[in-house]
Design a protein around this nucleic acid. Structure first.
Length: 435
DNA sequence: ACAATGGTCC
DNA sequence: ACTCGGACCATTGTA
């Protein structure tokens, strides 16, 4: 890896993981408050809607069946209603009824739209709205468990997973807004902007990309201008959307097929975009080749802080297996380094926030003030959540602005890359508002 | 109890 | 002919 663009870290990934552990245990213990009543109201509202949609689906299918069963769904759609199956993905047991596939035949029959809506709502009900209220403590707070065992170095969150709480979709905001700050407190949500792209720009030493980030340009617009041979101010919304998918895909080792699926365009068109992209971004192309070559010869790749991922099947004669590991070889250093940067920021931030409750707290060492002090700590500033490139903090209302600045500054200055790191911090009474 | 399928997040 | 990076969880249906 060409690390000439980056200062050599003086800490290893193992040390980072040791230091993040107590920080995570503390976050788990504190938990985050949710508005159970709001959650139950939403449950009721969407529950009613679901019943209505169910009726529509049965009417259009001319019979009742289990909508949650892909087998029965496929039978209704493809045997009874005889919807076309060509171009649709197959599963072991027949035709796939995944949303991405149903979207392709949406115009064929009026039953598809309510099915998709049913899927969306039943997902929210069964995974979030119903289970979460049952998991709160006596203070209405949810406590997740963070894990360190991933192949890239990212954190996991389980029981409950608070890293996949809905944010897109029709009801995303409604659900996020049930994650609230305690009385007298505010939530601060801060996330890195395009941290993975910034990291790959540096790992790859891609001059065009480094230049863009240094000038604080809109990276997707710039990419669009590049691949569509136009000026940034002439880029259309659709061109920017496509360029965003291209940028996104770089980090994943995206293929023309994958990009065509994501964008719903022809493979040939996708291939053109990618080729044109690599023509301009020689650094990125070089990085990809370098990682694949390293994985073939060494059997592993590594992150900036030295976390290794072994790829034992990269020399497999079965092509798709070898190719899968080649994509991991491309992605792991990027995703893994981003994870390390976030962990470092969390470690530093926990220290900064601890200092904060120290200064605003007790002035003398009097014994009497000790429980006052512990009360103060209970309502003081602390980290609650982390979601891969985001940190959520809770703090007293009056300090929110000050704390937001500390969070943002800590995240942005945690490491000197070849391009600036940027973090956006928002303040609100709930998670949705704070973003 | 477990595999398959599908869906949510970054 | 067919595929993209990393997780966790709910439901169905079979063993």
């Amino acid at each position: 890896m060409n690390i000439n663009n980056i200062k050599k870290p003086n800490i290893t990934s193992e040390e980072i993981n040791e230091q993040i552990k107590p920080v995570l245990r503390e976050m788990e213990k504190v938990g985050i408050k949710i508005d159970c009543n709001a959650l139950k109201r939403l449950d009721k509202k969407l529950g009613k809607k679901l019943v209505k949609i169910k009726g529509e689906i049965f009417k259009l299918a001319s019979r009742e069946f289990n909508i949650d069963s892909p087998i029965q769904m496929a039978e209704v759609l493809f045997k009874e209603l005889k919807l076309s199956t060509d171009g649709l993905k197959r599963t072991k047991s027949g035709i796939s009824t995944a949303a991405s596939e149903l979207n392709k035949i949406k115009s064929e029959h009026a039953i598809i739209a309510p099915i998709l809506e049913h899927r969306e709502i039943s997902k929210l009900l069964s995974t979030y709205l119903r289970p979460l209220p049952a998991l709160v403590d006596k203070n209405d707070r949810l406590h997740t468990t963070y894990g360190l065992e991933t192949s890239t170095g990212r954190l996991t969150s389980s029981e409950p997973n608070l890293q996949n709480i809905p944010i897109r979709g029709k009801h995303g905001d409604e659900i996020r807004s049930t994650f609230i700050a305690d009385k007298g407190m505010k939530l601060i949500a801060a996330d890195y902007s395009q941290i993975e792209l910034r990291i790959v720009a540096c790992l790859a030493g891609d001059t065009a990309m480094i230049d863009a980030f240094k000038k604080n340009e809109d990276i997707h617009t710039r990419t669009a201008a590049e691949i569509f041979n136009t000026k940034p101010n002439k880029v259309s919304r659709d061109q920017r959307r496509k360029a965003k998918a291209v940028n996104f895909g770089i980090v994943y080792g995206q293929t023309p097929y994958g990009l065509s699926q994501t964008l719903g365009i022809k493979i040939e068109e996708a291939a053109e975009y990618i080729l044109h992209y690599f023509d301009i971004h020689r650094g990125i192309k070089g990085y990809i080749n370098e990682m694949i070559e390293k994985a073939h010869t060494d059997g592993f790749v590594e992150t900036l802080f030295g976390s290794k991922r072994y790829l034992p099947n990269i020399n497999s004669r079965i092509r798709y297996i070898a190719e899968a590991e080649e994509r991991m070889a491309i992605n792991t250093p990027v995703q893994g380094t981003a994870a390390e940067v976030l962990k470092l920021a969390m470690i530093k931030l926990s220290q900064e926030l601890a200092k904060l409750s120290g200064e605003s707290g007790v002035k003398s060492g009097e014994k009497l003030l000790q429980d006052q002090n512990s009360k103060l700590l209970a309502s003081s500033t602390r980290m609650l959540l982390t979601v891969h490139d985001e940190i959520v903090v809770e703090c007293p209302e009056k300090e929110a602005k000050k704390v937001a600045k500390i969070v943002k500054d800590t995240m942005e200055n945690i490491i000197g890359l070849c391009v600036p790191l940027q973090a956006e911090a928002g303040i609100g009474d709930n998670w949705s508002e704070a973003k």
